[in-house]
Write a protein that binds this DNA or RNA. Structure first.
Lengths: 116, 116
DNA sequence: GCGTACTGCAACCCATAGGTTGCAGGCGCG
DNA sequence: CGCGCCTGCAACCTATGGGTTGCAGTACGC
């Protein structure tokens, strides 16, 4: 999956797409079926499904004469892991900076004294 | 934080905002400082920072005459946990459906009549 | 074999998100 | 004390994303 982080997040940034994903999370559905339960046209649904498919959040499967889509939980899990990793790195650097700021003397040995 | 999932994801769906977040993840910066290193105007940066602040991804702090912003890793972590939970639920239901489909005998205890 | 329902493609519309410029106010530094 | 930098607010522009309608093709069920 070459879909970059902002792209995947953008795909998840639309309420209608979350509606679609929620429905697909409960079981496979076709675009027409989705259009029946959601307040948008089948064509709009189709565009959303295409976006979601490009970032790997849904997969399509030809079933008879219709095409059913299903939500790929693993993709969401992968994204979650990436975000978590980045979040942790932010906090780590933040802590390091605070340490430096609050440490008056440049005794830069690794003595993680929690003198808060 | 009342920011709904699609809203937070939308905030993360813009490349420029990721640039900002990345810089802020390395240490606190002011809007002007960000505008100096990024190819957009200070005002544009300001709008992005406002969006990020509304969903809790950055926090601001008055430091002397300037306002510095810093990335909130915990928020990203919280989002990651939510996404992971949802992803898992999708996979669980998927497995259940596949089980039902591949189980020839209706030996299921609660078989909610799939009469389609 | 016919009609029906599903799909794919294209043109078009409109709101808004992302960006810019311009200006006015204030706090710090030299 | 005055200059400079940083902030906040507002008006404005434009591309694009989300949506619609319409049409043509095709496979399924009866």
């Amino acid at each position: 999956m070459t879909a970059t982080l902002p792209v995947v997040c953008a795909a998840l940034g639309d309420p209608t797409r979350w509606e679609i994903l929620t429905r697909l999370g409960e079981g496979p559905m076709s675009a027409s079926a989705l259009a029946r339960v959601l307040p948008v046209s089948r064509q709009a649904i189709g565009k959303h499904l295409e976006v979601l498919r490009e970032v790997g959040l849904v997969e399509s499967e030809q079933r008879g004469r219709e095409v059913v889509y299903l939500a790929v939980g693993a993709r969401l899990g992968a994204l979650a892991r990436e975000l978590d990793r980045i979040g942790r790195s932010w906090e780590t650097r933040l802590l390091r900076i605070k340490e430096l700021a609050e440490r008056p003397g440049p005794a830069a040995s690794e003595a993680p004294e929690a003198s808060d």
